[in-house]
């Protein structure tokens, strides 16, 4: 394991993108920062610019309007980086699978521009914060 990957695993800064979620996964992600879950223990930090981020947390099944923006945000991220699909919608569009306005899921959109992107999935509606932590840890240790 190179030192780059080691440091990345110890200090993943995440940028959060909602591509048409119902807010549930999003508030659970914010809840991760708060005293009960406190992911700063693991060096995880929510940052305000994709240029500072190592991991992209995507929630929502990607609406037609959000898809181009998702691609743009992914392009702005310095590599190496990991994409996390948080919640049933991000994994496979969930209950909105038959919607005319959903063009996702997330992995399809990301792979269109980067076939080798590293993508991890955390299902649930919404996944509990514990599940998100466990998903992030598992994905990082698989790097």
């Amino acid at each position: 394991m190179s030192w780059k990957i080691w440091a990345l695993k110890k200090s993943p800064w995440v940028f959060h993108v909602n591509t048409g979620a119902c807010n549930n996964c999003d508030i659970e992600i914010v809840a991760l920062l708060t005293p009960k879950f406190d992911v700063e223990r693991f060096g995880i930090k929510l940052v305000g610019s994709p240029r500072h981020a190592d991991a992209l947390l995507v929630t929502g099944g990607v609406t037609a309007q959000a898809a181009p923006r998702l691609r743009e945000v992914y392009r702005q991220m310095p590599k190496p980086c990991v994409v996390f699909c948080i919640g049933a919608c991000a994994c496979d569009k969930g209950i909105f699978a038959n919607s005319y306005h959903m063009v996702g899921p997330v992995d399809k959109i990301i792979r269109e521009i980067d076939p080798n992107a590293i993508i991890a999935y955390v299902p649930g509606c919404p996944p509990k914060p514990e599940a998100i932590i466990s998903g992030v840890v598992k994905a990082l240790s698989a790097l």
């Binding site: 048409g20 609406t63 309007q65 959000a66 909105f96 038959n98 919607s99 306005h101």
Partner: peptide, 14 residues
Amino acid sequence: ISYNHRGIEKISES
């Protein structure tokens, strides 16, 4: 807006 439009009213009819 529109980023979050999921067509719920239409899905509801189905």
